[in-house]
Design a binder for these strands. Structure first.
Length: 467
RNA sequence: GGCCCCAUCGUCUAGUCAGGUCAAGGACGCCGCCCUCUCAAGGCGGAAACACGAGUUCGAAUCUCGUUGGGGCCA
């Protein structure tokens, strides 16, 4: 059975790149009816925090990437790693190293300066422990031969073993390193497919040698290209919002972010829009591209809009409520919000925009745009506003079609363009010159509110005349 | 510095493994037109790419080599 995992380090929020790695793992497991496990790689006690773990879990849940096992915490598995390290030590497949990080760094720099390979020289191999020195444990890489990584995405890659460094598997402070813990955990947890960023590609031959040394089965690997920023460097804070939670706050839909992230490096013919179910059905690792992709916020915005347009207004309204509340709008009424959303769906690209646009429907007194009022709430338009008001007062309710035909009729009678009546009403009702179709707006606001707002505009013009 | 990966419109990509149907298709963005009560949405159209150089071949975006560029790893 297929078993995949996502193994983030809890040193911050869930990054866009991490989310994509998680997504590929999740999709692959779902597609193959396998399981997906979550493992928190918190061996770096200095930088790992509980808040970060919480934030990562929250973001994964929001994206809909549910896991079947875990979360496991590496910090609670230290004795397992130490036992494995001891086993390697006992079998002569690992050795103590007494060099300090500072010494190593210095030697590395020196070798680089001289134009040589910065490879560890094995000076500690087989020596007696020097007094006053703490020991790290190094894995002994075979001198000869080569190690093949048969990557599902990248193909076969061969590494000469003598190019590989004897890597540290346990630090001098007793903390096992990433490359070691990952191998032990993936083996013990029965991971069949390791899907991760290609920044780990160079670690893979070393990890394969560790699997072999430990006598464990080697999983299949799939290294997916990293996401880059506009300047073609690895996506980071410098490039703007990079956390999943930031996009959530900006009003992006999880399914849109998922759709966008998966299309960054994966394709299925010419199809751009995918529901999550479609992705599960169609996802394959074979269609993951080999080259790096640049994060393109404009396309994400477009996709978000597409997902919003296709979402039913009822669901969209539920999602909108918290955004309205942030703008001080409470108890707006379900029905009215749904109606409002109906008129705004094709206009707003994010929930944030939707809430901004929707505001005028719910506030007591619309905020009049200065320029709009100066242009349209003037003595010349006063008669039209009065006529519309009277028209509204005659009818019990507002039927958008009826009111539209009446106003069109009116424009005809006066031999003016509809625009000349529509714009003053628009300013009176919405405060600005841009809004959904004015008759739909009237329908959402309701008869009484329309009359109230038009009255306000009429009074404003009158007071201008007097003043 | 060594090793590893990558290279099609500005961006995401189809096509590359099985060379000819590709004077390179789609999408985002951009520009124009149509629709229109404003703004969107929608419809139609446009500009825009095989990094470079050799080689293999009747024929190369596709195979090989090299160069260049970008990315990554080296507690």
């Amino acid at each position: 059975m297929v078993k995949t995992r996502f193994a983030p380090s809890p040193t911050g929020f869930l990054h866009i790149g991490g989310a994509r790695t998680a997504l590929f793992n999740w999709l692959f497991s779902r597609k193959n009816r396998g399981s997906f496990i979550l493992r928190i790689e918190d061996t770096d006690i200095q930088r790992s925090t509980e808040e970060a773990t919480k934030a990562i879990l929250e973001s994964l849940e929001w994206l809909g990437l549910n896991w079947d096992e875990g979360p496991y915490f590496q910090s609670r598995r230290m004795d397992i790693y130490r036992k494995h390290a001891q086993k390697l030590l006992d079998e002569g497949k690992a050795y103590f190293c007494y060099c300090t990080p500072e010494e190593l760094e210095e030697r590395r720099k020196k070798l680089l300066m001289e134009g040589k390979k910065p490879k560890y020289d094995r000076r500690c191999l087989g020596i007696k422990p020097p007094p006053g020195r703490k020991a790290a444990i190094r894995f002994l890489i075979p001198d000869e031969g080569e190690t093949e990584v048969n990557d599902i995405v990248k193909g076969s890659i061969r590494f000469r073993n003598d190019e590989l460094d004897d890597l540290i598997i346990v630090r001098s402070d007793g903390i096992p390193t990433y490359n070691f813990c990952a191998v032990v955990d993936d083996a013990l947890m029965g991971i069949t497919h390791v899907i991760r960023g290609d920044d780990h590609l160079n670690n893979t031959p070393k990890q394969i040698l560790i699997y072999k040394a430990l006598g464990y089965n080697i999983p299949l690997f799939a290294h997916v290209p990293l996401i880059l920023g506009l300047d073609r460097t690895r996506l980071s804070k410098r490039h703007g919002a990079t956390s999943v939670s930031a996009y959530r706050e900006m009003g992006y839909l999880p399914e849109a972010l998922v759709n966008f992230l998966v299309r960054l490096g994966w394709s299925c013919g010419d199809q751009e829009f995918f529901t999550v179910d479609e992705l599960i059905e169609k996802f394959t690792l074979e269609n993951v591209g080999k080259s790096q992709a640049i994060f393109n916020p404009e396309k994400l915005l477009w996709l978000n809009h597409e997902h919003m347009k296709r979402m039913d207004s009822d669901s969209l309204s539920r999602l909108l409520v918290p955004f309205l509340e942030k703008r001080g709008i409470r108890d707006a009424g379900r029905e009215k919000i749904i109606k409002a959303v109906n008129t705004l769906k094709s206009r707003a690209k994010t929930l944030q925009e939707l809430a901004d646009f929707a505001q005028f429907y719910f506030v007591k007194d619309v905020c009049l745009d200065k320029n709009a009022a100066e242009q349209y709430l003037v003595p010349e338009t006063l008669p039209y506003l009065i006529l519309i008001k009277e028209e509204l007062e005659r009818s019990e309710t507002i039927d958008p079609r009826t009111i539209e035909s009446r106003i069109r009729q009116l424009a005809k009678e006066k031999s003016i363009k509809l625009l000349e009546i529509a714009q003053p009403i628009r300013v009176a009702l919405t405060g600005g010159t841009v809004s959904p179709p004015i008759f739909d707006v009237m329908d959402v606001l309701g008869r009484d509110e329309c009359i109230r707002r038009i009255e306000r505009a009429i009074n404003l013009i009158k007071s201008k005349l007097e003043g």
